[in-house]
Each structure stands twice: as C-alpha cells, then as structure tokens.
C-alpha cells in the first residue's frame, strides 16, 4: 500500500511538472507561432483553449458514465468516488466551454448566444451534471446518492453523441471545421497548436482527477472512522453501513 501511495505521489508530481511546463509553451505557441485565422482574426485564438476544454469535459462525462456503470455492476465504493470526481471535473471544463464560447461568438457572430443545437445540447449537458452534483449533496444517505447519481451519470452521457454530431445533423452557426485559404480542415501549424493545448488540458484533467479522488477517499475514511467512534461510544447503535448522513 505505501509503495502504491508513493507511486501515485510520483505520478502526481510528474503530471504537475508537465502541466507547469506545457502551459507557458501553449501560450507561446498560441500567441507567437500559430497564424491568425483569415475570417475571424485574432479572436479565433480562443479556439485553442475552448476546444481542449470541450475534450476535457467530454472525458469527465465519459469517465463518470463508465465508473457509474462499474459501480452499479460491482457496487464498489471506489467506482462511485471516481464517478463523482469525473463528474465534478466535467462540470468544471464544461463551464469553461460555456463561458469562452459566447465570448468568442460575440465578435464573430454578433450575438452572445443562439438557440442552435450544439450550444443548447452543451448547456443541457452542463445542467444535467450540475443536477448530478446537487443530487449527491441532497440524497438521504450515501448508498442512495451513489445509486441515483450513477443512473443520472449514465443517462446524462447520452447527450454527448448529440453534441458531437449536432453540427452534422443540423445546420447552424457553429463551425464544423475551420477552412483556411480555401483548403479543408485546419492549417498544419494550427492543428499542432490544438494538439499541444489538448494534451496539456488532458494532463491537467488527469492531475485534477487524482487530487479530487483523494478528496473522496479522505471523506470515506472520515465517515468510516466516525462510524467506528460512534459504535465504540454506543455499542448496539444503528449499524449505518450505508453511510447515512448524520
């Protein structure tokens, strides 16, 4: 167990160092190397943090659904902890997407928000997972919170394919691909910049996930010790193995 703990610490340290080195590099690449997009101008540089945030949000939601499924199948507390941590990070990165998107849209489209499907479905995804977090806070006991949240986590993830495919299924203002100088897709330097920023955001996501899951572990440990202390103080008291809230 201590070896596992030290390995986790090492991984965490390496992730932190990688993120600390990559973030300034990303900023340098975004502001000094990648060319300015022809139609939108410099404001298009929001793209390099907006899109990676969306990838990180998708990863959070996807992991939440995966761990929720594992929890419902195996009923192991660690899966529930990971699902909770992933959902929180999904909400965090989805919030960034929903704020940077309108800031990008205003100078390019002339409006902060439109009712098109990609934007609306992303907002719905955010609302579902905010609801997921609120549900966990307000459930009567830990088991109930875990079960209900797992169901919401799985159902909520069904919004992801809709978001992803929305620009193909419905026509709207949201770009599918950026077209540079009549060509298709991203210009190679832009693509490299996007890949670098995406890698940085995913490493940041991994670092935050480790930290957030540690928080869940500490909460569980405190609950277990509190229960043990109550059992010692009042033998024969309610067993509360399901972690009923005090």
């Amino acid at each position: 167990m201590p070896a596992r703990g030290s390995a986790a610490r090492l991984l965490e340290g390496l992730l932190l160092i990688a993120v600390a080195l990559l973030v300034p590099l990303c900023l340098y690449v975004v502001f000094a190397i990648v060319p300015t997009e022809e139609k939108m101008g410099i404001v298009q540089r929001i793209f390099y943090f907006h899109v990676p945030s969306a990838f990180a949000a998708f990863l959070g939601v996807g992991l939440c659904a995966l761990f929720s499924t594992l929890y419902l199948w195996r009923r192991e507390r660690r899966y529930d902890r990971m699902a909770h941590a992933s959902a929180e990070l999904g909400v965090l990165f989805c919030t960034i997407v929903l704020i940077t998107g309108p800031i990008w849209a205003r100078p390019v489209w002339g409006v902060w928000w439109t009712g098109e499907v990609r934007l609306t479905s992303t907002l719905i995804l955010w609302l579902i997972y905010v609801g997921y977090l609120l549900l966990r806070e307000n459930a009567l006991n830990r088991d109930q919170a875990a079960r209900w949240a797992a169901v919401v986590g799985i159902i909520g993830a069904m919004d992801m394919p809709i978001i992803y495919k929305s620009v193909e299924w419905w026509r709207g203002l949201h770009p599918k691909v950026l077209r540079i100088s009549g060509g298709g897709g991203l210009e190679p330097t832009m693509e490299k910049g996007l890949m670098l920023c995406t890698a940085t955001f995913l490493l940041l996501f991994a670092y935050l996930l480790i930290q957030r899951s540690r928080l869940g572990r500490l909460q569980d440990e405190i609950e277990a010790l509190t229960h043990a202390a109550r059992s010692v103080a009042a033998p024969g008291a309610a067993p509360a193995p399901n972690g009923a809230r005090p």
Binding site: V43, I46, H50, L92, I99, T100, I103, R106, P107, L204
Partner: peptide, 17 residues
C-alpha cells in the same frame, strides 16, 4: 476590439481553473 474579447476569454479560463 477582438483582442479585448480574447483577453477576457483567457482571463476567465485561468480564473476558473
């Protein structure tokens, strides 16, 4: 003008994180 929007977007990202 566009630079103002860009600055706001990047500020928001770092402040939230």
């Amino acid at each position: 003008r566009k630079l103002h929007f860009l600055a706001w977007a990047y500020t928001v990202v770092w402040v939230i994180l």
